[in-house]
Amino acid sequence: MDEQKKMAQIPESVANVVADGDAILVLSGFSGSPETPIGLRVSTHALSLASPAFKNTFATATPPTNADGGAAQPTIVNLLDEDADAIYILVNILHLRNDKLPAHLPPSGLRRLAILAQKYACVVAAGRATVHWFDRLYFNTSTTTNSAEIWSMIEAAYLFDEATFFARFTTSWIFKQSLHTKQIPLATTAETQKLALMLAERQSQAQILLRRDIDMLADSCAFTFSKDKVHYIDYAPGLSPDPDEGRQAVTCPVDSEGAKEYLGALRDAKIWPSLVWGDYKPRSSNSALQDLTISDVVERVKAFREPEYDDCDKCEFCEDVRLTFIETLQSKREEQEKRLWGLCLDCFKAGMAKGSGECRVEHAKGAL
């Protein structure tokens, strides 16, 4: 504390967050000029209302004495070890100075702001001001956004308790992951280490769910090849034509031909079998080759078009493989559209799978 008092001097450059502020926060300098200390003139009342941590800091700070009996001098608080850029944004939020806030923040900047808000116990006070930054980052997320940037957004959403953006960003992270390997993101805080492990586990679950979806599509065709589904024309499965009728027994081809048509279309679309998932493709202008992602296969299912197949020759004992396949395809598309591929913030913080009605983000019961 004595060392801090000794170093607590008003810098030559002081920016007014509020012109009549009664305290000056001394920072080491912004990212553009890190070697130039700068002071921020703030209101101890405003910061103390929003942050108990700031309130404690001001309570222990001693304002400089004024031997001349002039106007009261501002309290000087040394924050040389803090992230100056994040402090600047945070105190402007807490003073409701929206006019001084940047139009957008990069993922790393939003994460650093979230870490600072946690440290100064003002997440609730600062959180609402961050929504437009989260929103802009989400709608600017593209195929070129790397997993590390999305992870920064996830950490920020977690620390700011933003349930909707947490679900969106964790889904974006899952979609960018490989179909074949598991990645554990690098946590930047001890609090998010467990989150990193859970997200990696969720990736494994997403891989399993996707394989199950594709298996069910294939099964809607493959079941027609089973022995108990094979039948003669106009005869139920398991029955043979009456030999007294004097006609040759002919196996009904409609089911098997339709099944082959749809299975072939799935393979042409590189959806089934999983062997076709092992391909690699260009993903950027420099033709860098990357592994197929979960999103790639989800998009293939979404873009799949039913092949033309005429099943007018089917008899009354056919399984109507065309209708079964179409219904299964539509069902899987709807499930994938509604599925929470990422994590639910409320469930994660509760440490258990809650009912969808108890969470801020709607999702199926049991899906974190």
Rank of each mutant, 00 (worst) to 15 (best):
residue 155 E to K: 05
residue 155 E to V: 01
residue 155 E to L: 05
residue 155 E to D: 06
residue 156 A to F: 05
residue 157 A to D: 05
residue 157 A to N: 03
residue 159 L to I: 06
residue 159 L to M: 07
residue 159 L to G: 01
residue 160 F to V: 00
residue 161 D to R: 02
residue 161 D to I: 02
residue 162 E to R: 06
residue 163 A to K: 12
residue 164 T to C: 09
residue 164 T to N: 13
residue 166 F to V: 04
residue 166 F to E: 08
residue 167 A to Q: 12
residue 167 A to R: 12
residue 167 A to C: 09
residue 167 A to G: 08
residue 168 R to N: 13
residue 168 R to S: 11
residue 169 F to D: 02
residue 169 F to C: 01
residue 169 F to L: 02
residue 170 T to H: 03
residue 170 T to V: 04
residue 170 T to Y: 01
residue 170 T to C: 03
residue 171 T to N: 08
residue 172 S to K: 08
residue 172 S to W: 01
residue 172 S to I: 00
residue 173 W to G: 00
residue 173 W to H: 02
residue 173 W to I: 00
residue 173 W to S: 01
residue 173 W to P: 01
residue 174 I to R: 03
residue 174 I to V: 10
residue 174 I to Y: 05
residue 174 I to F: 04
residue 175 F to T: 02
residue 175 F to Q: 10
residue 175 F to M: 09
residue 175 F to S: 05
residue 175 F to E: 11
residue 175 F to P: 00
residue 176 K to V: 00
residue 179 L to Q: 11
residue 179 L to G: 06
residue 179 L to T: 07
residue 179 L to M: 14
residue 180 H to M: 12
residue 180 H to L: 13
residue 180 H to I: 08
residue 180 H to S: 13
residue 181 T to G: 06
residue 181 T to I: 09
residue 181 T to A: 12
residue 181 T to E: 15
residue 182 K to T: 15
residue 182 K to V: 15
residue 182 K to E: 15
residue 183 Q to T: 13
residue 183 Q to F: 11
residue 184 I to R: 13
residue 184 I to K: 14
residue 184 I to A: 08
residue 185 P to H: 05
residue 185 P to K: 06
residue 185 P to F: 06
residue 185 P to T: 02
residue 185 P to C: 04
residue 186 L to K: 15
residue 187 A to G: 09
residue 187 A to F: 03
residue 187 A to N: 09
residue 187 A to H: 06
residue 189 T to A: 06
residue 190 A to V: 11
residue 190 A to W: 11
residue 190 A to D: 14
residue 190 A to C: 10
residue 191 E to P: 03
residue 192 T to I: 05
residue 193 Q to H: 08
